[in-house]
Design a protein around this nucleic acid. Sequence first.
DNA 1: GCTCAAATTTAAAACGTTTGCAATTGAGCT
DNA 2: AGCTCAATTGCAAACGTTTTAAATTTGAGC
Lengths: 345, 345
Amino acid sequence: MASLTLRELAARLDISVGTVSRALSGDPAIALKTRERVTEAARQYGYVPNMAARQLVSGRSGFVGFVIPVRGPNFIDSYLGEFLTGLGEGLVEHGMDLFIATVPAGRSELSVLRHVVESGRADGVVVPRIGEADERLAYLLERRFPFVAHGRMLDSSAAFNWLDADSVSAFGEIFDLLYELGHRHFGLVSISDPMTFRHLRERGLRDAIARRGDPTVILDVASAPRFDRGATVAAVNSLLHAQRRPTAMIGLFDELALTIMEEASRAGLSIPRDLSVVGFDNITAAAYAPPGLTTFEARTRDSAREIAGMLVTIIEKKPTTPITRLIAPKLVARASHGPVPETGR
Amino acid sequence: MASLTLRELAARLDISVGTVSRALSGDPAIALKTRERVTEAARQYGYVPNMAARQLVSGRSGFVGFVIPVRGPNFIDSYLGEFLTGLGEGLVEHGMDLFIATVPAGRSELSVLRHVVESGRADGVVVPRIGEADERLAYLLERRFPFVAHGRMLDSSAAFNWLDADSVSAFGEIFDLLYELGHRHFGLVSISDPMTFRHLRERGLRDAIARRGDPTVILDVASAPRFDRGATVAAVNSLLHAQRRPTAMIGLFDELALTIMEEASRAGLSIPRDLSVVGFDNITAAAYAPPGLTTFEARTRDSAREIAGMLVTIIEKKPTTPITRLIAPKLVARASHGPVPETGR
DNA sequence: GCTCAAATTTAAAACGTTTGCAATTGAGCT
DNA sequence: AGCTCAATTGCAAACGTTTTAAATTTGAGC
């Protein structure tokens, strides 16, 4: 604002603007003595470069953009909170700032993303929650705009930069854990939305079942639209009140697992005595909801921090081959799972 | 990026740049016919103004800054999630964008705020969670930089723009509610940190007690540092295991109330039969933790949206007298409070 | 003391807008 | 036809940097 300009600083030092600019950027072509003198003066007078001017000539904004995905009533849920935290942490390490855009009521997420990209206010963007046919990715790829996705496509041939939790193995691990505890009848509460993580997690579970090769294993699946509370409750109850009830139920993510626990309690079932429940994500509420939800730590925050690093590399180095990374989730064993019930089977 | 420039657009229209600029901004000095022609061409060629250039000359960035306050392990908690959501919503209505800065490990929150302000990357900032002697406010006031605080100072003479929840009356309401249910012995779990909301809430409670004028009312207070889980548990238990235990306990905010409920259960107390518990904020976990925490909806999201509007007004109109606003919290009556226990008193 | 290259610094253009002021146009009047 | 005045439009400066190319200074070698 009222801050010193480069010209003024140069005047006080009786040196040309160009030299001052170079000195501050540490250009070795400038004599060391001059560089030190300039740096010192800049510090002393509290010179702060005007980002707009710098951006105008460099073409880089120093911002990474993030469009908050449209969703239910609460925009920033547990996942996004973690994610943004990590992203901020990661970016600040690289001297980048975070530009957050929300989607106004009438407009589409894509149009906002377009605004972010085309206004030149961001040098790259991070795209969370990948859908099966994601128009955001299509747009960014076509436009060759730097981005990193959190999540991947099902078709691994799609060439772009992504980082994802290895939910395939995590869901395999859940199955193995419960199988070892004697469970043979599983219920999965899933979503009907076209998100890729849904397929990956289901695949992880199914692959593990197939690997085990035990024909007595049963898997029932019930799905509901993502943020439709009523339908979700109905889906959960369709499994809970089936003729033969699963002994272990898995939520595609914690919110679903919590709903399972609620409905089970309502139905008079005791967890984990009558029913084992496992989730995925380890959201805050998972620790509070009795008896404590067994789940997987998706390490969202670490993931986001790493994504920040990846994106900065991509912006600066413009690598030709995509960078991809898998993060291994970690089991958080709480009290909602246990051995298969002896009775009633 | 590869987007059309104003000069190019002007060339195609065979009109001067200045005219095009004015036409696009809707300047009535430009003939209507020309304006329409330009607008149409801009739309057709997909012209997007370069924000950096615009910012350089106008001196305005179109960004509102927000420095994520330093805190415990999880930066973006429930409060901040709600707040950022509302802020984004509010800003987008005014065509402004949100610039989020995180505080790197070694640096102070103030230094980051200074960076945001002095780099000219934001036209105004929003400051959450006001402390008793808040150096951020002191800095912004001295610098005369536009800002709105979420929260106020105790000394109401401090002249700046703020919006706050009317926690004084809310805590009075809590007291009245519990008093009517027969409670006379209250326990308040508070924090020892120098945040102004702590004093305001305690004051609300004390004022209500004084107003009632019943000398049999007892209020015990225990405090712990904000994010010190161990000390918090100890503070809670100091009240729970006192010679005479309060029949109603109030958490300064929901996290504390949830801890009260946890520790009470651990001590074998049934809620609300043996103990009533009330919180404040209505965080997500409040609904999940059994038997459902009675609390106040602080309307953080609405508040943030309104703050966005206030800030835009301040940036554009530069009013001379401060804008202040109180938001009335709303009771969310769940199952954690009830009549005073008949026995044991 | 001179030459020439290396080291250092300077001048000026460029980035893409906005905006004050001057210039042009054309209609209405005399 | 000439003049005035308002309505339009054009010109050019300015915003604060970075960076290219040119100019200047320095200093080593003879």
